[in-house]
């Protein structure tokens, strides 16, 4: 598992540098946390396919992240610390002008994260808290990069937010309970140029998450897509797009057809079979648009016809 993960990560880094390859630093593959050094505790979620997918997404985007020059990076739900440690290793520390914050609702996880960071020789400020409770007032608009591997597994609602390891996966109805609490916090904490990387599975309805984030002015793309035996994972990258925000506002003010077009452009990235319901809705909207167009045209012709009749008389 360990070797295949590392190979996988290196492979992603190689691809990303080939694809971008314009900066020298981009050609040096980033270091990530070493699995055998990651600390553990019976009540803390160990790095798994979802964690690896998130780190691969960050590694693949490392050149862009370095060019983005973030000052404050934050992980919500840091668990074992594998992801925040990897991010700190690949982007650099205080000397490079970066500050890292990590939160977890599980105090054991906060402690394990500190140990994982320490053994790798990097630092992040770790806080035991629910999402960003206690940070929401003063940290508004300051976070440049946020990474989240949320509890996305659909479970009974009563399991959500427990103290131990269940908090790492229990996601309530459609696995959306915690995700839906994180999204508005991300919107409020992210800076003007803020980026968010988030893991989702198909049952979370990622296209709907993208549509929801679109309404807050975020564009999105799938950074990594991976299918395992149990689940199909997407790591989605969101970024504030000021043009699109203006467009979305204008669209909301005029007709629904424009906004459905925009959402469709976001949705077109996802395989349609997974998101049939939403795609069907937008197609339906388009039919409505065409129908109105034809009606308008008929009305126009009818007016000309009447005018001709009057004129001929």
């Amino acid at each position: 598992m360990e070797d295949s993960t590392k190979m996988d990560a290196t492979h992603h880094a190689f691809n990303s540098t080939q694809a971008v390859g314009k900066q020298v630093f981009g050609k040096i593959p980033g270091r990530i946390a070493e699995i055998h050094l990651v600390s553990s505790h019976p009540e803390v979620y160990e790095p798994c396919d979802d964690s690896f997918a998130l780190v691969d997404a960050l590694l693949a985007d490392r050149t862009n992240l370095l060019e983005h020059r973030p000052m404050l990076c934050m992980e919500v739900g840091c668990g074992s610390g594998y992801v925040i440690t990897s991010l700190a290793l690949m982007l650099g520390q205080e000397a490079n002008g970066l500050y890292y914050l990590a939160t977890d609702i599980n105090p054991h996880a906060a402690r394990v994260t500190t140990e994982t960071l320490e053994v790798h020789g990097v630092h992040a400020e770790v806080i035991s808290t629910d999402i960003a409770l206690g940070l929401e007032k003063r940290l508004t608009g300051l976070v440049d990069v946020m990474v989240v591997n949320p509890p996305y597994v659909p479970t009974p609602e009563c399991e959500v937010g427990g103290a131990g390891i269940t908090s790492a996966w229990a996601g309530g109805e459609n696995g959306r309970s915690v995700i839906d609490k994180i999204l508005p916090v991300a919107d409020s904490l992210l800076s003007e140029n803020g980026w968010l990387y988030m893991v989702t599975v198909v049952s979370n309805n990622p296209s709907q998450i993208c549509a929801q984030m679109w309404e807050k002015g975020f564009a999105s793309r799938i950074a990594v897509q991976r299918s395992t035996e149990e689940e199909s994972l997407h790591v989605i990258k969101f970024w504030r797009d000021l043009d699109r925000l203006a467009e979305a506002k204008a669209a909301a003010a005029t007709t629904r057809t424009i906004s459905s077009k925009i959402i469709e452009s976001v949705l077109s990235q996802f395989p349609s079979s997974h998101f049939g319901a939403v795609t069907a809705m937008t197609i339906d909207d388009h039919f409505k648009g065409v129908y109105i167009l034809i009606l308008n045209a008929c009305y126009g012709f009818f007016k000309i016809f009447l005018l001709h009749l009057i004129y001929l008389r």
Partner: peptide, 13 residues
């Protein structure tokens, strides 16, 4: 009071 142990503040309510 919010305790800080091993450098980790606990802000849970």
């Amino acid at each position: 009071r919010f305790p800080v142990n091993r450098g980790i503040p606990n802000m849970l309510l």
